[in-house]
Design a protein around this nucleic acid. Structure first.
Lengths: 111, 111
DNA sequence: GTCTAATGCATAAAGGTCTTATGTATTAAT
DNA sequence: ATTAATACATAAGACCTTTATGCATTAGAC
């Protein structure tokens, strides 16, 4: 598990990017995917996820589609055009940030 | 300038690492060095810096030495043995975090 | 068959870190 | 002589996240 401190400010980036890569997804699905992709090192909590999704939607970056499976509700989120731009921007910002940090910390990142 | 959000949680890491690399430094010197190393992209504000230095000192990770230059005071900080361990740990944590994020975001980091 | 875990949404209080604002004082530069 | 830079420090507020809680459905375990 990563220090939750480092995660701060990256949640929007993560959400936007997985939506960009996977098209429409619902909230719970996002938590599971991030958990898998990160091998359990990044846990997206619901208390952080839902307010962030709502805010991105309110800002016009996400659109929603509610689907009923049996009696259970799923709220699918997908990127609007503005959301796609923001996704690119956020990922670029993050990569830039890492480049800067690797200079300041004098570490080499290879992946 | 990087989004200040991404910086959250990295200040301790930055401080510990520059102290490890440069031996003793005073607060103002740290802000200047980080500003230089990051080409102006990371600004360590005094409102964040000094409380963090004080906390690291209170926790036994830093030791101080006050020097008077003319009538002006400089408070030099350097790592204690515990601080050196913490510096390594924090940098390792950060590198791990970046590795995980690069998988989740599907980006390649090269530096 | 019943109980628990997993699925699925959501909100609210509290915590932690940072920004912004402010304060004081010395020294260098214009 | 005035401003910018150097050098410390603290406090209020903003922001995002964790933790806690709530409700409801469905799958699995025993």
């Amino acid at each position: 598990m990563h220090s939750p401190e480092l995660l701060k400010g990256t949640l929007q980036t993560i959400i936007l990017k997985v939506l960009k890569d996977n098209g429409k997804m619902y909230g719970y699905e996002i938590t599971q995917l991030v958990n898998e992709l990160s091998a359990g090192r990044i846990l997206v909590t619901e208390g952080a996820l839902y307010p962030t999704l709502h805010r991105l939607e309110a800002d016009g970056h996400l659109k929603t589609e509610v689907v009923t499976i049996g009696r259970r509700i799923r709220k699918y989120y997908s990127l609007t055009p503005a959301g796609k731009s923001l996704a690119k921007e956020r990922v670029n910002d993050f990569v830039d940030f890492i480049r800067t940090m690797s200079v300041v910390l004098q570490v080499k990142m290879s992946s």
